[in-house]
Simulated scan of single mutants.
Amino acid sequence: MDVRRNSTHFILLGFPERLELQVLLFLLCLGIYFTTLAGSLGLIVLISGESHLHSPMYFFLGNLSFVDIAYTTSVAPKMLCDFFQAQKVISLAGCAVQMFFFLAMGSTECCLLAAMAYDRYAAISSPLLYTVLMSPTVCLRMATTAYAAGVLTGLVQTSSIFQLHFCEPRIINHFFCDLPPLLGLSCSSIFFSQLVNFLVVCAVGGTSALIVLVSYGYIIAAVIQSHSSPGRMKAFNTCASHLTTVILFYGSGLFSYLHSTVGYSQNQDKVASMFYSAVIPMLNPIIYSLRNKEIKDALKKLKKRKKQTLFLWCTVS
């Protein structure tokens, strides 16, 4: 059966078909995916196991690590399996599910980044009220709201796309079911879907970005007013990792979803998509580990305990 004539499937073009490039890209993507899994799972285990990391900031970091795993896993396994397939076929239902999880986890990450910015604001601008502002109940509600907003966003955007009629042959010039290339396949009007996408991006991404900007505005003002306070300066230094993640995530996402169609290049879009779907989730644990003294200390303690355990085991044996 020719899948080009099967209206229940899409064909993904993926990456260049030259064999040497396929092998190189496969190994690169596989390395990025395994590094993401190892780094994010490592952070989750470390935060769960170290009592001094049981604070709001690390609670949200643990959730961010989980979202990064789900986010990249919605794309990577299928992409890796497709590298050496003659026809990279994905069913209509599979495409919808992939898009839902990708969009839902992306929106959840936006909300978690905003929650982490508010947490830094509370720690620096209102240290005396910090335990009240960021109580365990408040943190749990914020995290639950982030996941709920992500799921709702994924459902709304995915539904708006899959009510369209797609032209035959259903060939997607991409390596996964992303929103912009699917809009380009539509034979029906995409005005409603574009409007929904724009409103959702403004509601979730715009609100999250506004919270981040306002929080950092207050943070900078507080640090300037009490620049002699070592505690606030130390807290401000912890913002560097978060701010780096925010800039990378929002920058690549906005480029892909809101850039002008003038001079639009699908190859550029693939590069941007690879960056925010695979590279950024890999970088997040690295950024937070390299810039965070408490994480480094926890890693050293864990390493020391492992050495002691190994020594005792060898002694007993």
Rank of each mutant, 00 (worst) to 15 (best):
L182R: 05
P56V: 11
F236C: 10
Y121P: 00
S260I: 01
T8N: 15
K296N: 03
V151R: 06
S215W: 09
T137S: 10
A272S: 09
L179P: 01
L183R: 08
S208M: 02
V279A: 04
Q22L: 08
S228I: 12
I69F: 02
V132Y: 13
G263A: 06
F66Q: 04
S135V: 02
D2A: 05
L312I: 09
Y264P: 00
H54W: 03
K303E: 06
L179S: 02
V67E: 01
V246R: 08
D178T: 12
L129C: 10
S265E: 01
M282S: 08
S256H: 13
N197K: 09
F236K: 11
C111Y: 07
K296Q: 11
S7C: 04
R18D: 15
L243S: 14
Y216M: 01
F176L: 03
T73D: 02
K88Q: 08
C29I: 11
A70L: 15
L37K: 06
V3D: 05
F26S: 05
K88T: 03
G39Y: 02
I220M: 12
L43G: 02
M274K: 12
G39S: 05
D297R: 12
I286Y: 03
D269I: 09
S193W: 00
D297M: 08
R141C: 07
L41R: 09
S160C: 01
I124S: 01
V223N: 01
V246T: 07
Y147Q: 06
E50F: 13
F166P: 02
Y264R: 13
V200M: 05
M142A: 14
T131H: 10
H242V: 03
H242P: 01
V97K: 06
K293Q: 13
P169L: 09
K303L: 12
L25G: 00
H54Q: 11
K301W: 12
G39L: 02
S252H: 12
M99A: 08
D68A: 15
C314G: 13
L179W: 08
H9L: 04
F15P: 00
S260T: 09
S228N: 14
G49H: 08
A148L: 07
S125I: 07
D269G: 11
Q22F: 04
F102S: 11
S228W: 14
I47E: 00
I211W: 07
V75C: 01
L248A: 08
N284F: 10
C239I: 05
T131A: 12
M142Q: 14
A272P: 02
A222K: 08
A86G: 10
W313A: 15
A93V: 14
H52I: 06
F83Y: 09
F66H: 05
T131V: 11
I295E: 03
A149C: 13
